[in-house]
Design a protein around this nucleic acid. Sequence first.
DNA 1: TTGAAGTAGTTGCATAAACAACTATATGTC
DNA 2: GACATATAGTTGTTTATGCAACTACTTCAA
Lengths: 146, 146
Amino acid sequence: MSNNEFKRGELYSFITGKASTAIARRLQKNFKQNGVDITIEQWSVLYHLWKQDGLSQQQLCDATFRDKPSITRLVDNLEKLKLVKRVASKNDRRINMIYLAPGAQSLQEQTMDLANQTLNEALVGVTNGQIEIAKEVLQVVYDNLK
Amino acid sequence: MSNNEFKRGELYSFITGKASTAIARRLQKNFKQNGVDITIEQWSVLYHLWKQDGLSQQQLCDATFRDKPSITRLVDNLEKLKLVKRVASKNDRRINMIYLAPGAQSLQEQTMDLANQTLNEALVGVTNGQIEIAKEVLQVVYDNLK
DNA sequence: TTGAAGTAGTTGCATAAACAACTATATGTC
DNA sequence: GACATATAGTTGTTTATGCAACTACTTCAA
């Protein structure tokens, strides 16, 4: 028997990810209350483009841990909102490069502040040491399964 | 400035819950490979009914951290699969009590085993002490936001 | 006892996810 | 060069979520 085996009663919250659901909902609410009309999923795509503009859809799949149809449709919706644009690559005509549109620039600072603020609300009463360990565990879980 | 403030680069995985997404996907895959044809969300409802049969839809909302429309539709689908049944309460005619149907009994042991096995795959290389701290942090986050 | 407020559940709509099947383009090998 | 294989992206279908608006029933208070 593995020494990591969970007692049955403890399974549920790990698998269902209640905490990250709660953070995402709170961030969505904070976006809305501040007049930011995008979804968390759309924001997660913009987040990676703010780090590096001009990624292919496949690179966005890898960065956001989503499959290709999901990114196709998120980019569809972000294009409708005029926050990104698709540009066909000249080297490889299969590839769409995704670039931030002017409207997205103004969202960066505001949404990053709201995200930091939301995490601070979430982490009241948690020490930095505990946060480090939790992050480590979640990273190992992710690496074990990916 | 809060001493819990995250550096920007660390925001993303906490908010998007990559680890719990990965666990849920792996469990879904393990269900499928073993011929268990239900979704993780449906399983999460059954999970609570196995702990206590005969819960109202509202109690399922609280237990699974979902809103009422979500539970209405999950119960709709579980009823179609003949895994649960709705029974109108006689005391309070607003309430549907949800009971496990015979087909659900046989799933309990198998899916619980698969869930434990999935968690063990996920937690390879993580110590019990780290798991305890991670669980604590996630619980505090949840309590801070709910 | 009746009218207001609260609670349980449902329905409609928009967004998103997973999976399979598909098109178009590129690459690598004979 | 031609064909097999791989890669990038799209589309269709089913399931699920969040929010708002709604119905039905219950409770509470004047």
